[in-house]
């Protein structure tokens, strides 16, 4: 009994120290964001602010707020669309494999490794040709397409674990392609949607390169606005850190809210089938 207690205590000790380590950067972010401009120096990075100075937050908020809507308009549809398409692709590739489907999957997957910097110029030209340059829908399209490989991969790996017998039974009952997807696959893949959703939401929310090249001023998402807080030569770190924390709030919220779903989905036994 005592060994069990000791083990338990040790477990918590390890967990708590890891948790504290993980929070160190957050401490730096928080304290810096609350400092006045002249207190923000490298040597004083561990020090508490001598007085709470909210000017960084005020400035950051006023600059970021107008772009918050853009980010939601971009991230939510793009996440939903890429998750839906990825789920459909994953379903087809794992359960309805056809001749050559493995090769196609490989070709698709390869696509996520393309370094985006190298394709900016043709991409901009292409977006202008289809009249989606400098628009949120254009940015959504880009994120959906470049998100397809990873979403497909995640869903395919989820669906591979679903026993084929379940599908066979449904097929014998006369349920078709869409019926199986709707009634068997979708309910079983809630966890998958949560994981993919979290992944896509954070990636799209935090993405900078496409956001900065595909939009100007009024359409810019929040990450570009965050970058714009820093100047060409001078960076005010308190404003920067305050902005970083503010800009991260929605993603944080997603984690905390969906984290529950995550567990609920697991408890429902989605994977165990």
């Amino acid at each position: 009994m005592t060994t069990k207690l000791v083990k338990r205590a040790l477990l918590y000790l390890v967990l708590i120290s890891f948790a504290l380590l993980f929070l160190v950067p957050i401490y730096v972010l928080l304290t810096t964001s609350l400092k006045g401009n002249n207190e923000v120096t490298l040597d004083q990075m561990w020090a508490f602010p001598s007085q709470i100075d909210l000017s960084g937050y005020k400035l950051a908020f006023s600059k970021l707020f107008p772009h918050l809507g853009n980010s939601f308009l971009l991230t939510i549809p793009a996440t939903i669309l890429s998750a839906l398409l990825g789920s459909m692709n994953g379903y087809v590739l794992s359960k309805w494999a056809f001749r050559g489907s493995n090769t196609l999957f490989g070709l698709m997957l390869f696509g996520m490794f393309i370094p985006y910097q190298s394709i900016l110029i043709p991409l901009i030209q292409f977006m202008q040709d289809i009249h989606l340059y400098n628009s949120i829908p254009g940015l959504i399209l880009i994120h959906v397409i470049y998100g397809l490989p990873i979403c497909t991969l995640m869903f395919r790996n989820f669906y591979v674990a679903i026993p084929t017998e379940v599908l066979e039974a449904a097929k014998i009952d006369g349920t078709g392609f869409f019926g199986i997807y709707r009634h068997i696959i979708v309910p079983l893949s809630i966890t998958g949607f949560v994981v993919v959703g979290i992944w896509q939401f954070t990636n799209i929310w935090n993405e900078f390169l496409f956001a900065v090249t595909m939009t100007t001023q009024k359409q810019q998402p929040i990450m570009v606005a965050l970058q714009n807080l820093s100047g060409s030569q001078i960076v005010q770190w308190n404003v920067q850190m305050a902005g970083a924390l503010l800009a991260a709030l929605p993603t944080l919220l997603v984690y905390i809210l969906l984290g529950r779903y995550f567990i609920r989905g697991l408890l429902a036994g989605s994977i165990k089938g």
């Binding site: 970083a244 800009a247 993603t251």
Partner: peptide, 21 residues
């Protein structure tokens, strides 16, 4: 949530904070 939280930050923010630390 603590362990997963850093994922919510952008790479740029992570880079800056760790540059300091």
């Amino acid at each position: 949530n603590i362990f997963i939280f850093p994922m919510a930050l952008s790479f740029i923010v992570t880079g800056v904070v760790w540059q300091w630390i």
